[in-house]
């Protein structure tokens, strides 16, 4: 369950403010979704994330997509309209995380994994998935 988020401003405004991107620049070519390395595993494809934000549809925050995004910058590099979707994904995660929400539970990672995982993996994951 995601936390309750104050909906005084629109999702579109919040996302544009946090990401610094202009969401209506998107012309729906789908290149972002085509190149996304985890696109086929997502419930909402990257270009559909843009559509949902345009429509102020808060359900996008309940998608698996925003957590599956691996911040790989592929969509940002390929977008012909200069929409940095990597930043949009981060903005959406932060809308949830800043409500003091954690997407992962550190205590559930096994001792064996903790011993084996490189520091870069742990630090980056906690940075992206905990509030």
């Amino acid at each position: 369950m995601i936390p309750k988020i104050s909906k005084e401003t629109t999702l579109l405004d919040k996302t544009e403010e946090l990401s610094g991107e202009k969401i209506f620049s998107c012309h729906k070519c789908g290149k972002c979704s085509a190149g996304c390395p985890v696109g086929t595993l997502m419930d909402v494809r990257p270009h559909q994330v843009i559509e949902l934000v345009q429509a102020n549809d808060w359900s996008v925050l309940e998608s698996r997509t925003i957590w599956l995004c691996a911040s790989c910058f592929q969509c940002a590099t390929r977008c012909p309209k200069d929409v940095d979707l990597t930043r949009v994904m981060e903005a959406l995660r932060l809308l949830v995380l800043r409500e003091n929400f954690d997407h992962i539970r550190i205590s559930e990672i096994s001792k064996e994994e903790l011993r084996e995982l490189p520091p870069v993996a742990l630090v980056s994951n906690f940075r992206k998935c905990t509030g």
């Binding site: 957590w67 691996a70 992962i104 995982l117 993996a121 742990l122 994951n125 998935c129």
Partner: peptide, 20 residues
């Protein structure tokens, strides 16, 4: 050669990284 390996999801979505 440019495809993301799944990155930090090795912590929370190990199966995604295995697939990549």
């Amino acid at each position: 050669k440019l495809e993301c390996c799944g990155s930090y999801h090795t912590v929370d979505y190990k199966e995604v990284v295995c697939e990549k």
